[in-house]
Design a protein around this nucleic acid. Structure first.
Length: 282
DNA sequence: CTAGGATCCTGTCAGC
DNA sequence: TGCTGACAGGATCCTA
């Protein structure tokens, strides 16, 4: 579920609450959701690699958190408001723990709940120095801001027989986009998601890269695409979908550019939203 | 090596 | 009401 902007939003938000707090105990309610040996230590830093969140402790170990499709992190300190971010669903955070709570990280003050309906996500403990050698982390491609147009074009050519949407969803080709921002970036670029990557011109690749940066920049600036069902202690409410999304989950509504109806199709095995007029399948 | 589909898991919703 | 299949903001594994 959460894509790069959501994870970045979580990183920033959570930093306000758990930096310098001591992790004292890990309650593992679902074995599958916790990889490695539980550890204790004080939180020194929170980093992000693509959609993965890294919580560095002062004992040379780090917690890697990947929310995958339905993960949520909710920090609850009885003395403060609750901070919740991740997969949008209010019933997840109504009572804690609840039946979707997989792990509880207990700090010297407050608890961080890891909820995950589908159990695809995980928290993994590993030595801090090995984070960048982790199988998932080390394969990640650069994020759009760090990739040149020429490099991006070259990567598309390498996967010329895949459809462009599948290509930009592959984190080893370009890192950070998920289903929302892939659809939005392709719409802004007037590119049909089912086109072969090899058919994308240099000009189109350049526009697509810029669009990817743009949709994610906007989302980060508005606190992610999280819906207003969140309880956020810092007062922010992610509203990218309401404010900026042009196609995602807007099937049946009018395209903001031409007025034609947005339709939902299936591309690369994923629900995909397009304006059939603005995004022609050449 | 690439490309496409199945798969992990739980929950919800549309349609019969 | 009860059942069934499709689908879900991700990534990996298996096959050809």
């Amino acid at each position: 579920m959460p894509e790069l902007p959501e994870v970045e939003t979580i990183r920033r938000g959570l930093s306000n609450f758990i930096i310098e707090k001591k992790l004292k105990n890990s309650v593992i309610l679902c074995e599958k959701s916790f990889i490695g040996k539980p550890t204790t230590g004080t939180v020194k830093n929170i980093r992000r690699f693509g959609k993965a969140l890294i919580i560095d402790l002062d004992n040379n170990f780090s917690l890697m958190v990947h929310l995958r499709m339905t993960g949520q992190l909710i920090y609850d300190d009885k003395t403060a408001e609750r901070y919740a971010a991740g997969h949008p669903s209010d019933n997840f955070i109504a009572n804690l723990p609840n039946r979707q709570t997989r792990v509880i990280l207990e700090f010297d003050s407050g608890k961080l709940y890891f909820n995950d309906q589908r159990k695809f996500g995980f928290i993994k403990v590993l030595p801090t120095k090995e984070i960048e050698n982790d199988n998932f982390i080390k394969k990640l491609a650069p994020e759009p801001w760090k990739m040149s147009a020429a490099d991006f074009y070259k990567r598309l050519q390498k996967h010329k027989n895949s459809c462009i949407k599948a290509t930009i969803l592959d984190q080893t080709i370009i890192c950070g986009l998920g289903n929302i921002y892939a659809d939005e970036a392709l719409f802004l670029s007037h590119i049909h998601p089912a086109r072969k990557s090899g058919s994308i011109s240099k000009t189109e690749a350049d526009l697509l890269l810029k669009s990817a940066r743009k949709v994610m920049d906007r989302s980060i600036a508005s606190g992610g695409s999280t819906m207003a069902t969140y309880v956020k202690a810092d007062g922010t409410t992610g509203d990218y979908l309401e404010k900026f999304a042009q196609v995602f989950r807007r099937e049946g509504k009018k395209c903001s550019l031409c007025g034609e109806k947005i339709v939902k199709i299936k591309v690369a095995g994923r629900g995909t939203h397009i304006c059939p007029h603005c995004q022609e399948l050449k």
